[in-house]
Amino acid sequence: MKGADIGIGWVDQAGNVHFQDRYAFGMGLPIIDNTTTDWFHLQGREQNGWTSIQFKRLLDTCDSMDVPIISGTNILIFAYGLVDPDLLRSGSDISYHDTRRGTRIIPLRSYGNPSSEEKFAGLDSVDFRVSNYRVPSEESNYYCKVYKSPAQFLTKRHAVAHKVLIDSANRDLVHHLVLYECDPAAVFDDTNLPDDVCDNVYAHVHMCMSNSAIVWAVGGDDIEEFPEEAGYPIGGDLPVKYYVLEIHYDNPRRTLNRIDSTGVRFYIGKELRQYDLGFLSFGTGPNPSSLAIPPQANQFVVDSYCSPRATQ
């Protein structure tokens, strides 16, 4: 916890809320911030063994003992003790939390100003979503499911936005997801579409793991609206007939019997837009031949080249 910016609070027996701005120089007791106080409690209560405190802090306090809250992912730590400090007793301080601690990667600040879902009320939509998948009790797991292109759209339509659908109880499990477009040459049995741990079905879906339609990871906004002049093409006689949803579950505690129904939703506009929206990916594939970083290397440079046809 070295370098952690910490807010510590408790509710005493009289119902008074106490809140402190602290900083951790090492693995020991975090000290009270001796520069400026930037954490402020708004309200708090303690009931039936639960303590709840609402507080506020500026995104960037310009205080050397505070950590800026950035766009995207923020790594949070949490811990709690069992005994409240007694401020009337000399030398009293917070008690050690022991094993009552943990960490989370949480988006605290949006990259932009995501649209409200109400903006897309009344539009057609299509979901690519898993159904009551029992997440394995493994630390890391990739799940893949194949979907056929929606048959209800007989002519090409344009999606104007997409939303990531994650069960609120499983926010700690879903690390990232990708919706891939299958190569037009990919063929499947529509009555038995692949649906399993990705390693188990890769031989069947390998032609579907290159072109992405949606990419989301922890820290990203749940709703993404496309530029007004472009829409993502879907349906009709488009060459893409199948999609694969790949979800990475991060389960460091190896918890059992977690049921998940994560997925994505396209909101379909009423009219076609001027341009079809597509994706251009830069970089190199994550394979041993391209990212074999030698041990003890001070730096490692990867050069990637793109054909001129990609920008035509």
Rank of each mutant, 00 (worst) to 15 (best):
K145A: 01
S137D: 15
P150E: 11
N257R: 14
G9Q: 01
A14H: 07
P194G: 02
F188G: 15
N200G: 01
N287V: 10
I8L: 09
D183E: 13
S110M: 06
E118N: 14
S110V: 07
Y242M: 11
D60C: 03
S212E: 11
L165Y: 05
E118C: 03
I70S: 06
D84H: 04
Y23D: 03
R104K: 08
N34P: 07
W216K: 02
P239T: 12
A217C: 12
L177V: 08
R273Q: 07
Q54R: 13
W39C: 13
R273K: 14
F188Q: 13
I259W: 08
M27C: 01
R45N: 14
D172P: 01
V130N: 10
T262W: 03
F25G: 15
L193R: 04
L177W: 12
S307G: 08
D222Y: 02
T255Q: 04
R100E: 02
L291E: 02
Q296Y: 13
Y143H: 05
V302W: 02
N298G: 15
Y143D: 00
P308K: 05
R258N: 13
L177G: 11
G236D: 05
H206I: 03
S137K: 11
N132G: 12
N48M: 09
P136Q: 11
F282V: 15
V240N: 02
Q13F: 05
N251K: 11
Q47Y: 09
D260T: 10
L58Y: 02
R309Y: 14
E118K: 12
A169I: 08
A79L: 01
D38I: 06
L177P: 13
C198W: 03
A24W: 09
C144P: 11
G49R: 02
S149F: 06
N34H: 12
P308T: 02
D12E: 11
D12F: 06
L59H: 09
I234H: 10
S52C: 11
G49L: 04
V17L: 08
Q47D: 10
V126E: 13
V83W: 06
S115W: 06
L88Q: 14
E224Y: 06
N170K: 10
N132Y: 01
F120T: 00
F128K: 01
G81L: 04
S115E: 07
H175C: 08
V240I: 09
Q43Y: 00
L154M: 09
F300R: 00
D222M: 07
A310H: 05
P286S: 08
